[in-house]
Nucleic acid binder design. Structure first.
Lengths: 202, 202
DNA sequence: ACTCCTACTTACGTGCAGGTCAGAATACGC
DNA sequence: GCGTATTCTGACCTGCACGTAAGTAGGAGT
């Protein structure tokens, strides 16, 4: 499929993924066609079928690459972040960066279309969120142990809240491109987990 | 269009809306066809075009009815809820009820597909969220004035957080039908706004 | 020089989705 | 018991979306 790992003009396979990814993140999996991708790349639809036999397989590859990248970003946060609160802020910033490119989280988008997705994509999306929730849970538990975070109930519940909160804030603020609004909502979300500091002052 | 306001066998126009609503809430606006609705109702596609000239108009009617119902539910909460915290809990419960029927919020679904929607539907969806955010903002401000809620920053930011948090939690928990998980996440979300009570005890 | 693989293209087929239009059936006032 | 409006059907059209098959251009290896 690929000529070499270091193909200079980016490689058609990768460029297909790049275009398709953007289309899914903006229009959804049911909102774009092979023709859209082909036209944008200046190739034929048949060429797409050569690289990815069908839309289902392209979708699978999309989810897999996105999940890998996200996993890598989380691993980097584990290393770089100086503590649980910083890790959470870094996590929210990952979302803000996606949003600032006028996109929705790929898997958040696919979560909405979940019922219409081929099984392999469903599994990929589910795994993505499970991995994220698990990462958040571990960060939250560490923060509570270390005394840098405080929250009631289980860490898993708060992890689900953070994950859902960021995805949802993204979903809604994307409509009018309000990145600042997203950051404000995300900050408020995380403020509810901090060791009660900035309370009450309006 | 309708024979009478009190048509006993529900009226085709209404039944079309009911079926289409469920399909949008589960599969999205790009995930169902006129044929799906017609088949389920045992009528032809042409009959659908008689009641709603096109998918765009059907979609508009769907958003309008959903927004009206939601607005009525909010007005009822204003009357019935005994205070700001109760109003917020009631608000979250509205979402939980939708989810318990295995559905996503209609407008949350359409928010994902926003870029592919006809302009009139976009306006309807935007108006829905603005109305919800405004309602939440007023509840939050009242709660803060009355001393029943406490939160940092502007009420508008916290309103966006609650709105996004509930939509996002819904989006994600719907995948595995985890209503209990949704309620837990929603409770945690609102706990961050209460006058710091149940902090720290795991 | 020919072979073989990779990366495409051109041409086609199928099915479905949205929409139109001319009527048929039913109910309805009068 | 007759016109009229409402509600729906049958037949059709157009375009697109996904997919397939066969063929070709261009290098890489020997």
């Amino acid at each position: 499929m690929r000529t070499e790992p270091g193909a200079r003009p980016a490689g058609t396979t990768t460029r297909i993924l790049d275009v398709a990814e953007r289309l899914v993140q903006t229009r959804g999996h049911n909102g774009f066609s092979y023709a859209d991708v082909a036209t944008e790349l200046g190739i034929t639809r048949a060429a797409l079928h050569y690289h990815y036999p069908g839309k289902a397989e392209l979708g699978e590859a999309l989810v897999a690459r996105y999940a890998d990248r996200f996993a890598a970003a989380l691993a980097e946060l584990d290393v770089e972040a100086s503590g649980a609160p910083a890790a959470l802020e870094g996590y929210a910033e990952l979302y803000a960066e996606v949003l600032s490119r006028q996109r929705m989280c790929l898997c958040g988008m696919l979560a909405a279309e979940y019922m219409t997705l081929p099984p392999a994509m469903q599994r990929g999306v589910t795994a993505f969120f499970e991995h994220n929730a698990e990462w958040l849970r571990s960060v939250l538990e560490r923060g509570r142990r270390e005394g840098t975070l405080a929250f009631s109930g289980s860490a898993a519940d708060s992890a689900a809240m953070v994950l859902g909160g960021l995805e949802g804030a993204m979903l809604i603020t994307r409509m009018n491109g309000d990145v600042a609004g997203f950051r404000a909502a995300a900050a408020r979300l995380l403020a509810g987990l901090s060791i009660s500091a900035d309370q009450i002052p309006a």
